[in-house]
Design a protein around this nucleic acid. Sequence first.
DNA 1: CATGAATGAGTTTTCATTCAT
DNA 2: TATGAATGAAAACTCATTCAT
Lengths: 196, 196, 196, 196
Amino acid sequence: MSRKPRALRRRELLDAARDAFVERGFSAATVDDVVGNAGVARGTFYLYFRDKRAVFEALVDEFLARIEACVKSIDLSAPETPVEQLTANIRRVVELALAEPAIVKLALHDATGLDPDLDEKLHGYYERLRALIDESLQQGQMLGMVRPGDRRVMVAIGLGGLKEVLVDAVAGELTSDAAVITEEIMRFLAGGLLAR
Amino acid sequence: MSRKPRALRRRELLDAARDAFVERGFSAATVDDVVGNAGVARGTFYLYFRDKRAVFEALVDEFLARIEACVKSIDLSAPETPVEQLTANIRRVVELALAEPAIVKLALHDATGLDPDLDEKLHGYYERLRALIDESLQQGQMLGMVRPGDRRVMVAIGLGGLKEVLVDAVAGELTSDAAVITEEIMRFLAGGLLAR
Amino acid sequence: MSRKPRALRRRELLDAARDAFVERGFSAATVDDVVGNAGVARGTFYLYFRDKRAVFEALVDEFLARIEACVKSIDLSAPETPVEQLTANIRRVVELALAEPAIVKLALHDATGLDPDLDEKLHGYYERLRALIDESLQQGQMLGMVRPGDRRVMVAIGLGGLKEVLVDAVAGELTSDAAVITEEIMRFLAGGLLAR
Amino acid sequence: MSRKPRALRRRELLDAARDAFVERGFSAATVDDVVGNAGVARGTFYLYFRDKRAVFEALVDEFLARIEACVKSIDLSAPETPVEQLTANIRRVVELALAEPAIVKLALHDATGLDPDLDEKLHGYYERLRALIDESLQQGQMLGMVRPGDRRVMVAIGLGGLKEVLVDAVAGELTSDAAVITEEIMRFLAGGLLAR
DNA sequence: CATGAATGAGTTTTCATTCAT
DNA sequence: TATGAATGAAAACTCATTCAT
């Protein structure tokens, strides 16, 4: 009926799908739910996405691209100190997550174990993120700014901790103050949990 | 066919289900896969479990019970120091995870977003675990052994970090040496990542 | 886009449809295939044909009309003998078939069992063709040029044999020499298969 | 509901499918039509056949197997003459066709152009039948019992004629007397159509 | 005339669950 | 207890056709 520019209709379907997935979970949500939310006919969905998995993938792609855009490599020649740059990176990620709670829930919480292909894709993204962080840690270790240790384990803890914080934050179980969360994360990174 | 003690048959079905779920994911795995693995007829499954969700729940229950059994409250009057007790707790969890990789994958990776009821159950478990850790942290803070800070964020980071380490470890992306993993975790808790 | 004379556009669509139907079969071929071959938009198709069946029908009509044009009634007062006239008829049909293999495949091979209306139409054509041949046979019998016998069976064998020869010929399983095929058919009609 | 032996249920579904296909044509008939005829639930169909094409294929297989069983190789050392044996072959085929009109309609009339795989299968069957006949003709030619000529064309005419006769016969457009049809076919083979 | 976005009825297919044997 | 045939609700997906632009 209402002829819309292709990109706009696609956007509507993405948003409708996001809502449907958040509300019912990816498996339980049906294409019917999605088109119902979008207010279009069933067939229209397939004009824009091959299948249900494809929308999900597009949503995740979109979110991960935005996450990646938040993370700038540490620049030693910049006026800000490396720790300041790291803090800024984390803060941007936290702010993005708080601004897009629905997608965080989807991408970090619901996206795994649904579909082998999708898992693989997510795995690839994580690998890239891990590599990025690993590299920074290595640089930091060489400069004596990061303590020595098994970097893969360090990355895993850091990334896992960050993910859980984000998920909990958007689930409303934590403060919604990005500054507080960021500061707390930095304290963890700087000194662990134990007093000395 | 072969009349087996009820408990044994149930065990076989649980194991068969675990394998099926790990291989194909909970949604994609069919009851047929499960009974196929177990070598019994379809109807038999329903003599032991109400439905497909029930086996999954039983598996998760079982695993979480074993996790909880690993975690002993810190006893200040014990001969071991609190840090030694914490280390032992973490080490037991890591060893359990490495011994039961399939279940880790299921419980920590796939169990989420499938079914509102199940999600709630898992959430409850996590809440209990969180409360346990939170309590310990509080105690530690009062004793001056844990630095001050927003405990909920501290718990989230710690738990998230631990989960990710376990998932990565069973995925074979990390060392399989429980001692190394435990030590690395403790260093993180003790001093964060940054050198000083 | 390119405004073309109506008849030309229609011709393009007919050819595009013929190709699509030959390649994928009538049922499997989609209107999309047709307009794709023709290089026009989907809607354009419906400016020229009521529906998918209509193009098919138009193609079959066209072909049957050309077949009928090949077949001239036997004229006893003509300078050529009846057998010569019959031979010429058959030869023209064979030549047409060899010149339009795609359409032969469609009209004789695929056209059937698709749609009751279309079936009826084809049946009507065959009836007319049968009647034409039957009439000639009757005339021939009266003149003593055709042996006696159940004319309906005779027609069926002759028509079926001719169809099969044409289908096989365009399928490349027989010689493509119209003269040879025609001669062989005439020998069959003249003396059957058995030696004497 | 009504538990039946597997083979019986399968038979019922085959018969139901045959009826559905004859009534509506293969493309138009739905799995729903089939299970409706059989009086079972939709899912039951898929317990016995992979899909719609599979039942059709099974029906055609069955019919062609029966056709092949009708055709005995000509045995020169038998007490019956070769022509008598040929006549008996043809008569058996005609009788089978008259006894199973529905399947004749399907296998000879509706089966082509629906599905490339199915077409190929049918084509294979025809090839075998053709080879069988070709061989007999060759033998006959060597013995001087069959006149010389392009055997492939001869086979095509014979087979096409036979098919058309059978289709017309079961369509009620010809006599239903197997003896008459057989005799008429033999006269055609023996002497063609033209008097001499 | 031409376009192609939108429609939605119509089919196929899967699979958790039941229940007669 | 064990079996596995049967069920049927539920989804995904296709595609001929329409119609606003």
